[in-house]
């Protein structure tokens, strides 16, 4: 699995950070998404899918092989 984010669409809801703090973080200035792990390990993948599904800005894209 590969993850990409579009900071331009991010609404800073913080839900991705709550769902998978190992993969997503927020900028201290304006809360915009920061991607820490573009290739999350197997045990985090289902949480990453949830984060993408609930993102209010649809800013998270999950690329599955």
């Amino acid at each position: 699995m590969r993850v990409s984010v579009d900071p331009g669409r991010c609404c800073s809801s913080g839900q991705c950070v709550t769902a998978v703090p190992e993969v997503f973080d927020q900028s201290e200035d304006d809360g915009v998404v920061l991607l820490i792990q573009p290739e999350p390990p197997a045990d985090l993948r289902s949480a990453v899918r949830t984060a993408a599904a609930i993102c209010p800005g649809r800013a998270i894209t999950v690329h599955e092989p």
Binding site: S12, G14, S27, E28, D29, G31, V32
Partner: peptide, 14 residues
Amino acid sequence: FRRMLTGDFIIKRV
């Protein structure tokens, strides 16, 4: 306007 406030509501700060 919203981005002037989002920094105050990031998960870490809350």
